[in-house]
Amino acid sequence: MQIILVLSLTAAAIGSGLIAGIFFAFSAFIMTAFARLPAEQGIAAMNSINITIIRSPFMALFAPTAILCLVISVLAVINWRGGASMLMLAGAALYLLASFVSTIIFNVPMNDALEKVSGSGPQAAKLWATYLRDWTWWNHVRTLASLLTSITFVRALMLV
């Protein structure tokens, strides 16, 4: 059981850390760069990313890290280790709720709405401005949650 816990925590710490880095890139410069483009070009670029990311290694990291968080939660409860288990549950909850679920509830629907817009005209420009603001805000949430998850799992590893 100990080896499964250590391997799960290690993999989830690395996975959530890598996800945090991807999200950070979007928050730090990708969305800012897209905002500098005319709406039609920005929409086209973001739609291209949204199609590409589904078939990229990102998905092979994003979903399995969520599964590892579920495994870690179960291991934390069935083999309670005080502070270490509390950290494991906190890290898992952060990733599952603020990174994984928020992506499904907020970012993906915004991506789907953007996909349906033709890239020109005042309606597209208005949607693009709203999209940039709202999508980026939720991305900041995902970035921070994924980073805190990684830190929390590393700290838990130090205690198990």
Rank of each mutant, 00 (worst) to 15 (best):
A129F: 03
A156Q: 09
A35N: 05
A20H: 11
L157N: 09
G83V: 08
W137I: 06
D134Y: 08
V160K: 07
F26T: 11
A113Q: 08
I78E: 09
S102L: 06
A28I: 10
L75V: 09
L148W: 02
S146G: 13
A113L: 10
N111T: 01
S8G: 04
A93M: 10
G42L: 00
T103R: 08
L7F: 13
I78S: 03
W80F: 12
L70A: 12
W135R: 08
G82R: 03
W137E: 01
A113E: 06
S118E: 06
L144M: 00
N79W: 13
A93P: 09
K116W: 05
V154T: 04
K126H: 15
V6E: 07
I53L: 11
F100P: 00
R142C: 08
V101T: 03
M1D: 01
Y131V: 05
M86H: 00
K116A: 14
L97F: 15
N50Q: 03
F26D: 03
L37C: 06
S16T: 11
P64A: 02
N50S: 12
P122V: 06
I3Y: 11
A124G: 02
V71E: 03
S150H: 03
M1V: 04
T149D: 02
I3W: 11
A125I: 14
A11I: 02
I19F: 05
H140S: 01
S73W: 11
V77F: 14
M88H: 05
W137L: 09
F106C: 12
A124S: 01
D112F: 01
N139A: 00
V160M: 03
S102H: 04
